[in-house]
Amino acid sequence: MITYPGVMPRPRSGSGTREAIHAAATRLFREQGYARTTVREIAAEAGADPALVIRHFRSKELLFLETMHLTLDDEPLLAVPLEQLGERFVEVLLDQEDLSRGVFLALLRGSNEPQIAERLRASHETVFVEPLRARLSGPDADVRARLAGALVGGLLYALWAVGDERLLAAGREELVSRYGPLLQQLLTPASDR
């Protein structure tokens, strides 16, 4: 909110204030994480009083949970044959880095809070496991999908949380061509081919 000397700012509506707080929190949580973001910072960014943050969202943790949702556009995963799903899944994850990285890191770093840990578990299930399990069949489909979800979660952890410089330097094409087949082995084991 821009203010000018001697001019009182025009009060926003309740929904305008709520939206401003939501937008500020989304940006700050993605950039700084849960622990390093304060209610005062969110309020200052939104041009609101800190009491309004609590009034609208009840707590910093509930505001975090409302703003941090990890998603994946799984539509591209449905269009490829199962035998190509490993590489395609890695491509989709890497292509959505701008949308997912901040949320993934915020959830990971805030996971010492019980509700945030539960959101991280639910996100892992819906973003990594369910899209893979939907494409698999057989008695061990659930275990294979969970192992594959752990594999891709490990890649994102190494790239985004650890910041493994050698992996980052490898580039998208090399990551897809090397990591995709590892994922594919879990999705379609040799016994299924």
Rank of each mutant, 00 (worst) to 15 (best):
S191G: 10
G47P: 05
F57N: 03
D73K: 05
R166K: 11
A158C: 09
V103A: 00
E130V: 11
T38V: 07
A48G: 07
A148K: 01
D192I: 08
Q84K: 11
G47V: 00
R40G: 09
A24I: 05
Y34D: 04
T71A: 11
G163D: 11
T67W: 09
G102W: 01
L78D: 15
Y179F: 15
G154K: 06
P5S: 03
F29I: 02
F104I: 05
W160V: 06
L156T: 15
H56Y: 15
E113Y: 10
E165Q: 13
L85P: 03
R10A: 14
A148N: 01
V80A: 06
R55I: 10
L52C: 13
E83A: 10
E118W: 10
V127M: 01
V129K: 08
G110Q: 00
R146T: 10
G33Y: 01
S123H: 02
D73Y: 05
R18A: 12
H22V: 10
A148H: 04
G149R: 02
V152Y: 04
V129T: 13
V90R: 02
F104K: 00
D95P: 01
L82S: 06
L187N: 02
V103F: 00
G16V: 07
L183S: 01
H124V: 09
A148M: 06
N112F: 13
G14Y: 11
I21D: 02
L186M: 14
L120C: 07
L99M: 13
E83I: 11
L120Y: 06
L107H: 00
M1P: 08
I54K: 03
G149T: 01
L175T: 12
E165Y: 10
H69M: 12
L28E: 08
R18S: 08
G110E: 02
A35D: 14
Y34L: 09
V53E: 02
P181F: 03
L99C: 11
M68L: 11
G6S: 03
A79S: 15
G153V: 12
V162D: 11
A23C: 12
R178P: 02
E75Q: 13
K60P: 03
H22G: 12
T71D: 11
R133A: 10
R40S: 12
L28I: 07
M8Y: 14
R172S: 03
L78I: 11
R172H: 08
P50T: 01
A141I: 08
S177L: 08
P50I: 02
R27M: 12
I42E: 06
P189W: 12
V7Y: 13
S15L: 09
L77M: 09
G171H: 05
D95Y: 09
F57P: 03
Q32Y: 09
Y4L: 15
L72P: 15
T3Q: 14
G14P: 03
L151H: 14
G47D: 03
K60F: 02
S191D: 13
L136N: 04
L82T: 06
G110Y: 00
L77Q: 02
T126E: 14
L62Y: 12
L28K: 07
Q84G: 08
V7G: 08
A48F: 01
E97D: 13
V152M: 03
D49H: 13
T26V: 09
Y4T: 14
A44Y: 09
A44F: 12
R40K: 10
